[in-house]
Design a protein around this nucleic acid. Sequence first.
DNA 1: GTCTATAAAAGGATAGAC
DNA 2: GTCTATCCTTTTATAGAC
Lengths: 212, 212
Amino acid sequence: MAERSENGRKNDPEQTKEDILLVATQEFSTHGLAGARVDSIAEKTRTSKRMIYYYFGSKEGLYLAVLEQSYRKIRSLESDLHLSNLEPEEALRTLISTTFDHDEANPDFVRLVSIENIHHAAHMLRSEAIRDLNVSVIETIAGILERGFDHGIFRRKADPIDIHMMISAFCFFRVSNRYTFGTIFRRNLSDGDTIERHRGMIADAVVSYLKS
Amino acid sequence: MAERSENGRKNDPEQTKEDILLVATQEFSTHGLAGARVDSIAEKTRTSKRMIYYYFGSKEGLYLAVLEQSYRKIRSLESDLHLSNLEPEEALRTLISTTFDHDEANPDFVRLVSIENIHHAAHMLRSEAIRDLNVSVIETIAGILERGFDHGIFRRKADPIDIHMMISAFCFFRVSNRYTFGTIFRRNLSDGDTIERHRGMIADAVVSYLKS
DNA sequence: GTCTATAAAAGGATAGAC
DNA sequence: GTCTATCCTTTTATAGAC
């Protein structure tokens, strides 16, 4: 009555799906939606192409699953910060560092978002899971801005979504445009010193903007 | 001895190439490199698929030509500003507005750069024309920062490339991530009021950063 | 649930005439 | 320089056995 797999684990659907998703995330983020090859994904998986269609229906279905999983991962990160105990400027700097480090650590996610924008966010629109994304970041920022203004620390009443955009833009661009920017200006944006300097820079910029 | 075309123009190679490039720019920026279809491009052109291969050799050759032409267009814009006559803060604000308006007015270019980043800037690296891009923006910014610091207007000695990145990031992201950002936060970034507010915002942020 | 083999279609590229 | 027709590889997707 021996099981089939060598690792002593019997056929595990969840495990198989996870495996496919992991490989697919890599493939889509490297080649884009149209550029990704189902065959390549299947080869790098410990299962076969047939299973991809069995579980995900189509190439697009797989892409959507990859996208949803990627967004689900960040959603969880954002909520566990507990910034309301910190004084406003410190809370904001912590939030910014978190966003910065997240993008730096997750180039695959950044690339998937870029790809989704190429496609006018069409898949994201179709996915309730993603569309109903926790926009708790905005509430967090709104709270910080309000407290900061009341305490006289920030002189400017800014829109929280605008501030979130300013932070995202900087953190995202560094990763998304790494290659073209690096090529033109001959600068390696993933270099350790550069990372440190940029992390401080975006925080200082946002804070000084709010204080001015 | 009648000419062939109805418009009284005889076969014009340059015109034909231009026509193909225009359509191809649209197609590549909308669907990405792999997603673009040579057949679709040919259909929308007043010439045939054969001519695309005749002039550009391959789909990749056409893509590279599109990319080069797009970069050539901005290069010319950046140089005709004559900012050295303006006082530093005004010069910087003018430069920022120009970048902002350029990205807003050229979503195709922004998308092509995003696509090129998906491909690790591989084509850009192969193209001398693009690699030797005029980096005069950096010299311009360096000059402004120096003058501003000497005049006591800016208190911070910042790296010109970093400042250029900060400006680019904001202006670029607004356009490149328009769809995903708009979907999640239910905000139209190409709305007139938003554009005005954002144009002022990035300028204020950079200036206050340098003054802090 | 999983595999091998294969169908079906799409899309990049070219032949050859004018 | 330009056109029509076509080749042929690549790639998505499925059939059918176990």
